[in-house]
Amino acid sequence: MASSDSSASAPDLPSKPPEWTRGSSSGRQSTFQWAPYLFLLPTVSLLFLFSLYPMLYGVWMSLRTADVIRGTSRFVGLNNYLQLFHDPQFGQSVLNTGWYTLTVVPLIVAGSIAIAVFLRDSRPARLLARVGFYVPFVLSPVVVATSWKWLLNEDLGVINGFLKWAGLATIPWLSSDFSARVSVVVATAWNLVGFYMLMVLAGLSQISAELYEAARIEGATGWDRFWHITLPMLRPTILLVLILATVHATQAFETILLLTDGGPGGATRLVVQNMYQSAFGRLQPGYGVAQAVVLLPVILFVAWLQMRLFKQEGMI
């Protein structure tokens, strides 16, 4: 990207202490400045109380087991983690998260590229269509799940209604393993794709028109231009979309919980839902947190990748 070679002129950091904080009287710059720390206090205390401390507390909890009746807990070492290996339900939820991620992420990547290329020109109709494609992303998980549940309803939904009307067999959208998985993937990709479309559009706007002009003179077809200019030039953007969509996928929970409740028979129960049920349903918080702790390094790794990419792009 353009800014990778411009570390000298990195836009964000002044290279010396900003003059303005010294004030009118000279010689005061050595006094300790409280102001920035005080300004950071609200954000940092919220962060400590509701992110950092829970993270550490979670690790501690995962080494203990709760006695719900007496309201106490005792140290059990790595038992909760060892238990994970023998828990077929947890194993299934890991597998489920795996296939879910491996299907929803490519769908989102391909979908967002296709839509963005399709809506590339900034003509009014296409700007309007962009807004339309973004709409699902601003809807709440509850609204998204309710809408899809209605659309896919087995007896009363409009899709099966049409199939019946056309004399075809209806499809058990949310109650057979395979179709429930397809429905979950499609509904959640539908929810997110508008957001990624915007990222791809931003990437597209960075590609210089001259490249396309040159290709046109060489007699390249539209398809050639897509494969040999658009896609290669979009590489950094696609990488970012891949990373963010993976984060989205590993933490997918609310929409799926409402859409299928993890069913049928656990076919769409992902790790986060399994954790939720262990902790709040079966009152084994330590065991629930152990599952989160297993997931945490994955998420931190992806977050780290994301930060590196941002740095490369000069965003941080």
């Binding site: 829970p54 507390y57 909890m61 984060v247 933490q251 954790m275 902790a279 989160a292």
Partner: peptide
């Protein structure tokens, strides 16, 4: 350090932290 801490820690989703946050 504070900036990176804020950005990275706040990116860890609630979904993962919900049990300890609930206890807090």
């Amino acid at each position: 350090f504070t900036f990176l801490l804020i950005i990275s820690v706040l990116l860890v989703p609630l979904q993962v932290l919900m049990v300890p946050v609930f206890l807090v």
